[in-house]
């Protein structure tokens, strides 16, 4: 016993070092396999700090953001002007009025890691729930993961854990969009049926098969197409529409149907 105590005393520094490193690895692995962060900064203190910094940075991008919003405004205005025509055409369809859009601002985020997260300045008090789709204009940004009262974390397309159900716009074939962690401007489209021929410039949009996003939201354009010899599926490099380096204003899609749709799917798979 005495020898054991002596031994521990002799190596106490090294033992503490091992213990602290072990703690670090537990945190790291937990984060990797649970998708959402345990030690997350969606709390008042850090959120407040990032909000203050974002407030300062906002002035730098004011002109750019203004232009963007103005363009979007113009687009919406033209939609309103065309509405009587649309209404005429849509008379026999039931218009889905269950989707609510919530505006939010990105206050902090990383693009240089493999496991990137963004923080936004809206939380459960504003009606944000986990698993809501996040867009910027009509471009896909990501999905909310963790929500506190005033802030939430979102898992952007550029996180290696992200996987989005996509389709090829010109022929409606379904594929999946993932990110390989190399470049924040490019993602990877996988599970493309073998017989398809894709060309640079082909547009990739959301499929609407998952309930995060309605169909037809923009993801990116094909920049390179790879044939996988001997495999049933091919993959492609996709240039993303979203500029994650300069992202500020985003919108969250609140789909009231989501719970019903989820439970329907669950009951179907359990039968």
């Amino acid at each position: 016993m005495r020898r054991l105590i002596n031994l521990i005393y002799k190596y106490h520094l090294f033992l503490l070092f091992l213990l602290l490193e072990l703690l670090g690895f537990i945190l790291l692995l937990n984060n990797r396999y649970q998708r959402a962060a345990i030690v997350n900064s969606t709390n008042a203190v850090t959120g407040g700090y990032f909000s203050a910094i974002e407030n300062m940075q906002e002035y730098l991008n004011l002109k750019q953001e203004n232009d963007k919003l103005q363009k979007e405004n113009a687009k919406l205005r033209s939609t309103i002007l065309n509405f009587p025509v649309l209404e005429e055409n849509l008379r026999f369809f039931e218009i889905d009025t269950n989707v609510v859009i919530i505006p939010a601002k990105i206050i902090s985020g990383q693009i240089s890691n493999n496991h990137n997260y963004f923080m936004i300045n809206k939380g459960s008090k504003d009606g944000i729930r986990p698993d809501m789709g996040v867009i910027s204009e009509d471009v896909v940004v990501g999905i909310t993961t963790r929500v506190s009262t005033a802030y939430s974390l979102l898992l952007p397309v550029i996180n290696v854990n992200s996987k989005i159900s996509a389709k090829i716009k010109k022929n409606n074939y379904k594929a999946s969009l993932i990110w390989d962690g190399v470049d924040y401007r490019y993602a990877k489209l996988i599970d493309i049926p073998n017989h398809l021929e894709l060309f640079p410039g082909d547009t990739i949009v959301t499929s609407g098969y998952s309930f995060y996003f309605p169909p037809g939201l923009l993801l990116g354009t094909v920049s390179e197409y790879y044939h996988d010899e001997g495999a049933n599926f091919n993959h492609a490099k996709v240039k993303l529409f979203a500029d994650f380096d300069a992202l500020q204003n985003v919108y969250l899609i609140d789909n009231y149907h989501q719970n019903q749709q989820d439970s329907l799917l669950n009951s179907a798979t359990h039968e």
């Binding site: 490193e21 670090g24 962060a37 850090t46």
Partner: peptide
């Protein structure tokens, strides 16, 4: 022994702010 704790605390603070649990704590310690 203080160095170890300071290193650990430094990495952990960065990790909490950047949402990268463990990623900075391990090399900093």
């Amino acid at each position: 022994i203080y160095m170890l704790w300071i290193g650990f605390a430094l990495g952990l603070s960065i990790d909490m702010l950047l949402n990268t649990p463990g990623l900075h704590t391990i090399p900093t310690t």
